[in-house]
Design a protein around this nucleic acid. Structure first.
Lengths: 299, 299
DNA sequence: CAATTACATAAGAAATTTTCATGCAAATAT
DNA sequence: ATATTTGCATGAAAATTTCTTATGTAATTG
């Protein structure tokens, strides 16, 4: 159940994350004195102090900070290594670290909940981990091995990754009730009018529709909720996925500023690190996501 | 002194390499029965048998074969990881795995012996490992982490590697005493004449001078000694580094078929995996190689 | 200034790992 | 065919390692 891995390093990482020995007791399931000894042994073999501790407070030393990051990364790949060996007995096990962009849960065409359900119904011993981040961060984390799969509208494709297109996400521009444009008749709405109002944009990939000559964005966000909040202020117009804005539109809070030039969609893909074979868990999850997408498109 | 690493895996790898438990006793420094227990424990936690053994002979199982390769790779990176943490205390330690092409020892302009001497004179606890392979293999091994640095005439550059040019290697075409061309006057030698004789070429990068319209090579080799042997038969003409052929020319065994079109040189570079920072040992060795090259060029 | 918190340390207890002795089965020698 | 040797497995005792308990110390807090 744990082939690679090393108690000293695991202790160190846990201690660093707990911010001290006493909290780490519970995380590690051993006594404080055992932790004290382990850290002492680690420091002895490393030849330097990894953390300052005591009643005065806890903090990693300069070297400890670097060691911590390296150790954390190494333990992660050690776990993946374990899983690789264990999966040779045809088990499905190990970590499955999934990354997605935010506001993905309501995206029609990608039923992630169903995909997860399918996956979890298989016999497996997998430990799931789901993180939310921007496409750019997700790409980085895939390459570094922090993630196994990621689902996002990837704008720039990395040569180190493999992509499978899943579905498309429809985008529109929106404003809120308190915005001057809210009550303007639909025929008035066009690029020229829009360009006179402050625009809120996404940081990560400038997902607004192909060059509308819209003004420099006055605000940028990395999250759909945050985008919605800024639009809600009435100070900004901003792009949102249609599925995400829908409830607010239905409530009469938002208005879609839809002229033909302001409708666009971005393709959602699933990305994995380029490799001959993936871990069984990864392989199966990818299948399940694709199956879930296919099921949706038949509806 | 060993942070990551795991006794079970190390035992397994050593046993696999020794081809049995009894030989591995000496390699591991423990008794045969301890090995037996360790392998049993490993198999218990993996859930499958890694090797068939007994008086009937030793061999890895199908799963064991895969596990062995993964484990070997993993232990290698575990050692590198150890070295990274240890080098935070300003030590120079760990493995330094160097790859070169063959016949590099006599290359003027690259005094590898001096570079190694410089490196070894520094205070360090490094374990050296030097392998000889073709530029293509070296590139692969750098990318996979099997090697830390490689020195070779790299023809195609990988985006995953960093290159530093060191010096150039002069090449000429040669034939031996028993070859029909050996006694032809120098003014007869030209591409037209040469193209009538079988040519021996290198497998790895077709290092012969830029397109001479020479005939399809009749023999290929991946090693300078082998090239020299084939030329020595008198059946082939073939390219060799000038410095390598020199002793044989001096002995009157080879003749240089040197017309202006048949002189060319290939740049020798040092390659490392692209990374922000390298291990201290790697960094220092690269410096030493460059210093050794610079020293030569002042002579 | 007492109480508390966070860690260090010593000694014994517990758990793990190794060795030693021996057993067994297959291959080889007689 | 039988004996011997080789390669590994196993049980029990020994050795080593690791943990817990109990206690100590220093810095902070009330």
């Amino acid at each position: 159940m744990k082939l690679l891995r090393n108690t000293l390093l695991e202790t160190f990482v846990t201690v660093a994350e707990c911010g001290g020995f006493s909290d780490a007791q519970f995380a590690l399931g051993i006594t404080q004195s055992a932790i004290s000894i382990r850290i002492r042994d680690l420091e002895t073999s490393l030849g330097y102090r990894v953390c300052e501790r005591g009643r005065g407070g806890f903090r990693l030393t300069e070297q400890g900070e670097i060691a911590y990051q390296k150790a954390r990364d190494m333990l992660r790949s050690a776990r993946d290594f374990d899983a690789e060996l264990l999966e040779l007995r045809n088990a499905v096990t190990g970590d499955l670290r999934i990354g997605v962009v935010d506001a993905v849960s309501s995206l029609p065409g990608l039923n992630l909940a169903v995909a997860l359900q399918r996956f979890l119904q298989r016999p497996n011993e997998v430990r799931l981990e789901i993180v939310v981040a921007s496409p750019i961060d997700l790409t980085q984390q895939l390459i570094s091995g922090e993630l196994h799969v990621a689902i996002a509208p990837f704008r720039s494709l990395s040569p180190d990754l493999d992509y499978v297109e899943l579905c498309a996400e429809e985008h529109r521009l929106y404003c809120s009730t308190s915005h001057p444009l809210f009550d303007r008749p639909a025929e008035d709405i066009g690029p020229q009018i829009l360009s006179q109002y402050p625009l809120c944009q996404r940081t990560y990939d400038m997902l607004v529709s192909p060059d509308l000559g819209l003004p420099e964005p006055r605000a940028v966000v990395a999250n759909m909720e945050a985008m919605a909040m800024l639009i809600e202020t009435g100070q900004y117009i901003g792009p949102l996925p249609e599925h995400f804005a829908k409830p607010r539109v239905a409530q009469g809070l938002f208005r879609e500023l839809a002229s033909p030039e302001l409708c666009w969609s971005s393709p959602f893909s699933l990305a994995t690190r380029r490799a001959q074979v993936h871990r069984r868990a990864v392989e199966l999850f990818v299948q399940d996501v694709q199956a879930a997408c296919a099921a949706v498109s038949y509806d």
